[in-house]
Design a protein around this nucleic acid. Structure first.
Lengths: 236, 236
DNA sequence: TGAACCGGGATTGGATGCAAGTGCGGTAAA
DNA sequence: TTTACCGCACTTGCATCCAATCCCGGTTCA
């Protein structure tokens, strides 16, 4: 019962099946870095923690494996996957391309509400510079997400959104967090790039918006990849 | 036992878990159009057919649902998904962008072996024009796959390959087949586009290769989308 | 005649049971 | 002391089992 409370508290969607809910929770845990790279996820432990049987846990782990979050070692269990700097650069190249497309599409399709949210996110961005380090990074990351989400929404291509979602989920948040935390030089650079992108979109300069966005994503992933390479103290 | 024979014959990988093997088989069936859009996939029937219990079938269906092949209706089962013309155009835009990137990358990275395979595929392409309609389309589709696969391989970005794979799998083969079958005008157009792309890659004209490939994919998906819109006799 | 209602059959969702596989620690031998 | 081996505990993989849900038919009532 206490377990079910934990489940209720942590789960967003109630109507979905247990496995779907578990997928969401475990994704969050991996992306947030709450469970470290290389950790084993055990059926029994998770089942007990969430007050369910091993069956939905197994299903969830298989889906996570299919999504690349964990690797299933036969008869051994599911282990959380890590990424190399090389992986991160590759992902940056792919995602940069797609977010560039989104920015170009957004030029023609963005509406007033979205414009407002885009510029607002970037105000929040600015304000976050005055906060303490962790709060700053936290707020910045939210503003960053909002900025990209609005543009994606404005682009109005469902499959594009889906595909970028897949790529976003490949990169655990805590790595980006660790890269940007307390590095206000990087954050300011990001801010400047966002402003330039927003400007290009509002001026409906398709090619500029595309190029700037594309570079922006690649720059960002390059910084993260660099951090990962430096701090390559990953679990074996 | 007879059932297990069927399983063995149809399954490629033997070491993998039953659910993984089932995922592969069912993906093939959906992509090939062997099971029609809107059809229900039943646990019991599949379990019996493959001589396994319902548990691995359930796991496989959940993974297929996560990949978008089927939709799981709570307490009702898994139903094979179809795509609208709009979906196909959206996918074309996304995939065009990424294959364009692949072509641009391939300019610098393609090696002799890959060059040979690329031009060979396009010879096979040409030869297929002399065959009977179905054989022609069949051979053409294989040549087409080979052409794109080689370029992707030459691009040398693993995550790009993964991502395009996801997009490819979203579009059942039988729809493309139906679109191109017996339409040698379309096939010839495709051939011409392939030749132009190959030429651009070999001349290391990054921007041209990118643009041609991108347009090529969008054209192709446009033709398919058009066919789907015309023949919108899809299951309800 | 038509709409609301109810029960049975089919089907899924989740829990539990059991055999098979794996790694680790302890022990014995070199 | 080091290395090879063996057995045990742990974990997974799959099968089976039970309850909850849903649809579809027939039936009843307005």
């Amino acid at each position: 019962m206490a377990d079910e409370l934990v489940l209720d508290k942590e789960l967003a969607v109630h109507g979905a099946s247990l496995s779907d809910q578990l997928v969401a929770v475990l994704q969050r845990r991996v992306i947030s870095g709450e469970v470290p790279i290389g950790a084993w996820l055990r059926h029994e432990a998770l089942a007990e923690e969430f007050g369910v049987s091993r069956t939905p846990v197994r299903e969830a782990l298989r889906i996570l494996a299919d999504q690349g979050f964990v690797s299933i070692v036969p008869n051994r269990g599911a282990r959380v996957n890590g990424l190399s700097g090389h992986d991160i650069r590759e992902i940056g190249q792919v995602r940069g391309e797609l977010e560039g497309l989104a920015a170009a599409l957004a030029c023609d399709r963005i509406n007033d509400d979205q414009t407002k949210r885009m510029t607002q996110s970037w105000d929040a961005f600015r304000e976050s510079l005055d906060e303490s380090q962790d709060v700053q990074t936290e707020r910045w990351m939210r503003a960053n997400d909002e900025f990209h989400s609005v543009i994606l929404e404005a682009a109005g291509n469902h499959h594009l959104t889906l595909t970028i979602g897949v790529l976003r989920r490949r990169l655990p948040h805590n790595i980006s967090f660790a890269t940007y935390a307390g590095n206000s030089r990087l954050i300011k650079k990001n801010l400047a790039e966002h402003e330039a992108i927003a400007k290009a979109i509002l001026e409906q300069d398709h090619e500029l918006a595309r190029r700037l966005m594309s570079e922006h994503i690649r720059n960002s992933n390059e910084a993260i990849a660099h951090w990962v390479d430096k701090n390559a103290a990953q679990a074996p």
